[in-house]
Amino acid sequence: MLKWSSIILLVISCQSLADGMVVDKVYHPYVTVNEREFEWRFMSSQTDQSNVLAQRFGYGHSFYENVAFEVYLVGERDETGDFQLSAYEFETRWMITEQGKYWADWGAVFEIEKQKSVNNYEASVGVIFEKEIGITSLTMNLFAIREWGQTIESEWETEFRLQYRYRYIPELQPSIELYSGEDFVGIGPGFMGVYRIEGQKQIKWEAGFITEVANSGKNHTLRFAIEYEF
């Protein structure tokens, strides 16, 4: 009871924090050693005033049983409508507890991003939580983010992501996703799946359609990611 009460308190607390667009990937705490992957992430957000497009191309490698590294090239459409490489990012994911050993599984993610053209940086530390509940899984990510640099004001931000997933079949696992930020609370359906090719080779995909619910006006985000693991 104490566990669930503290989780509910955590969710309620986080709904009132964070800043800006937070719809992205919900991280899971698990790492499989020797796994390599190419990843493409796509995120398109539409409001009454603008249409934001961001894409990430990544390569990841799990050198150790509990640590995975990933490097990303980040592309965004700028204010003139041109899509171009805007930043580089390095990410480390750490599986803190063995899957299933404790009441819940824990991980952490560390990210550092540098903008390509100017010396602006963003560093993030995230706590990853996952709890198996029968054939469903509850996953939560809580990020503390620090931004600083030449052309931006230094500030702290927090972001919160939640996914409640039904592990229906490997190819199709529907979910409900929730994202929270200072001016943004979004909720919507998500889907993920795995298609096995051979051995460790497999394709993982995920998608979500998130609608902003905290403010009036249109704000929809479509996110899509595909990973080739080998």
Partner: peptide
Amino acid sequence: WTTRIVIAASITLASGLMPVI
């Protein structure tokens, strides 16, 4: 709010680890 999150996250982490050990 930040203090509340830290406290809630700490309680969640601690309560999640204790019983199974």
